[in-house]
């Protein structure tokens, strides 16, 4: 990639928007995942009694729905990112490519 092309792409409003929006979303979602996971680990470490709460009948403790919810949360996060990227980001990328190629 030569310098002229780099300068051209860098100054495209679509490119700036793409970088800003994608980075923002990627970091936000990453932090959400980390907070949920390490929050769970910290809760296990510092308040193990919480996980002995029985929420249904005599045997279903709160830990089960919480654990499964984290797995589903991880999947939903990836789904959200992919949906957003497939529509917004790919559209911006296509515009950038059209401008320079």
């Amino acid at each position: 990639m030569d310098q002229a092309k780099i300068e051209k792409i860098k100054n495209l409003p679509e490119y700036q928007k793409l970088v800003k929006e994608r980075s923002g979303l990627a970091w936000k979602l990453s932090i959400a995942m980390l907070v949920v996971y390490y929050g769970y680990i910290m809760l296990l470490a510092f308040d193990p009694a919480f996980f002995t709460t029985i929420i249904s009948g005599e045997y279903v403790s709160i830990g089960f729905p919480v654990g499964v919810a984290i797995i589903i949360f991880a999947f939903l996060l990836t789904g959200y990112y992919v949906r957003k990227a497939n529509s917004d980001f790919d559209e911006l990328t296509a515009k950038i490519k059209k401008e320079v190629e």
Binding site: A26, L29, S30, M33, G63, I70, I71, A74
Partner: peptide
């Protein structure tokens, strides 16, 4: 289950970054 969750959470991060 706690361990299984530990294995999974790296994947979304790998996707985003």
């Amino acid at each position: 289950l706690i361990f299984a969750i530990g294995f999974l959470v790296g994947w979304p991060i790998m996707l985003f970054l």
